[in-house]
Design a protein around this nucleic acid. Sequence first.
DNA 1: TTGTAAGCGTTATCAT
DNA 2: ATGATAACGCTTACAA
Lengths: 342, 342
Amino acid sequence: MAISRKEVARLAGVSEATVSRVFNNVGPMKEETRERVLQAAEQVGYVPNALAQQLARKKSGNIGVILPFVPKVHLFSTYYFSEILSGIGEAANRSGYNLLLIFREPSDAKDYSMLFRTQKIDACIVLGARDVPEERAALEQLQAEGHPFCLVNQRFDGTSFMTVDADHAAGSREAVRHLIASGRRSVAFLNGPAEYSSSRDRLAGYRTALRESGIGYREELVFVGNYSRKSGYEQAELIGERIRSGEVDAVFAANDRMAIGLMQGLKELGIEPGERYGLVGYDNSDGSRIISPTLSTVEVPFYEMGRLAAEKLLKEERKEADGQQEDSLLPIRFLARETSTF
Amino acid sequence: MAISRKEVARLAGVSEATVSRVFNNVGPMKEETRERVLQAAEQVGYVPNALAQQLARKKSGNIGVILPFVPKVHLFSTYYFSEILSGIGEAANRSGYNLLLIFREPSDAKDYSMLFRTQKIDACIVLGARDVPEERAALEQLQAEGHPFCLVNQRFDGTSFMTVDADHAAGSREAVRHLIASGRRSVAFLNGPAEYSSSRDRLAGYRTALRESGIGYREELVFVGNYSRKSGYEQAELIGERIRSGEVDAVFAANDRMAIGLMQGLKELGIEPGERYGLVGYDNSDGSRIISPTLSTVEVPFYEMGRLAAEKLLKEERKEADGQQEDSLLPIRFLARETSTF
DNA sequence: TTGTAAGCGTTATCAT
DNA sequence: ATGATAACGCTTACAA
């Protein structure tokens, strides 16, 4: 059994309350008493019991991180989650919070509220959310019940959910502008599902860039995958035809994985990126540097986004936030590489 | 404030103890009482407070997962951790355990023991451990204090730590055998740091394969990187020379990242894999399929390893283990792809 | 500056 | 089959 305050108190000749005070560094206390307690604690190897603290404080000290359960995942980039998670970890660590990992099984009902009501977590960060009724309902419930949470890389229109997002419209606009500026005339767009706000943002950026260049938007040049490499690969035939016919001379893909899949598919059809067609991906994933020719892409500050989400949440926990915090979009950076160069 | 047993008890006209019994499904009880309680709970929206349960049970219900803190990580494969983590998640979820993520900062002293003594976790899984004195000491302390833990993909010789590992010696042996069988005569080995047992296992497998083929082991054909792509890239010059001189006609790399780095470095020197030299990596990472030519590699069941580690631990928690569980090595699978084919 | 004692919301033992 | 009640180990008024 563990050593408790009691023995420390007895050994130091003080009350249990005093031991607590010393360990919480609260209230005034004689330096001598302090040292006596600390020494006694050291002697018996006492450390406060976190469970008891949590119960007494009514705080678990845990931040829940909800992320899609993706065994054998190749849907999302693992890079994406690793970076965000590390960012969250850094901020949480620094504030003495722990991270409770929660895999959101596709099957089970999204009842995030339960995590709060059972006091397992004090706040949570939701990754990989989609704008579907089920998810919206779950988040609205959280908000209604006053539980602090923050979304990363996903906004829900018409709500006031706390969110950390990057400026995907700007990133996409730049990517497409680059393609046009380098002489491409007809840029196809391989987007992801519209349930992700980031997909919608990218579409907006794509359209903006076209408009700014006086190029008409043509719906038949917009293709949709699911962000997996396979889904990019599968569009190769269709898009390849357009390239052959000269109808398309560049593709902007909503992420690197799809871009890479597409690139591989087109290659099998004998169509190489660069001269033949310009290609830009999105995420600056490891793969984009590995593939040959190297993939032009857009860098997203995932790590920063995770860190920021945790910091916002923690700030609110400490009540430092007066209601609204500004909801700015983090800047992205376009990276020109070989696939978009002649 | 949260609703507690009290109100439920009052509303159902029973004692608080009875409410607990119903929720824990313990002891005999009249079906009618049961329903009355459940209904009352439903009515006021009662859910048991996890913190109170944990304190009373002296169990946090958390499994700690310790992993290296790797911001902007490109040292370890994120694929590696994602897979293992998902596997752990599946097993833990199924048993009602939560995952507490703990980033091991390179700087701070490894005091895993504290996590147990404060009762934050009931058991833990250590990822990415290295066989260095500091780490050994921390783990030995855990064992001495009787805290259950399990290592994944890393063994410590001379200890009886619970471990889940894959048969890297066999995997490496097969990889090298394949290279030799396909006509290569002089296989260099680009290994990772010896603090990882998996590096040492691979070396053993490499040597076994050579011996079995009657080829002498030559230390000067063994190179060491740190598992990063960069470290593979940096060996290109040295290894390239050997290839040019005909001293080396194949390379077995201890992971895909180094293999890919090396491959890129050699390419810049005008040396292409396949005909010129055979190359085999290790991990079957995404990159191995993305790169061109595709990288022959060895598949490791990371997901399974994570799942197994959690299951072993949970079995012990439930005292189902009679001391020793068998410590078998999970099988790996060699995948021949383009870089090792003529 | 320190002690006393009332929670915190359960679990689990012992009666009844 | 159910009720009382003592832990669990801490935080935090309130008293002294």
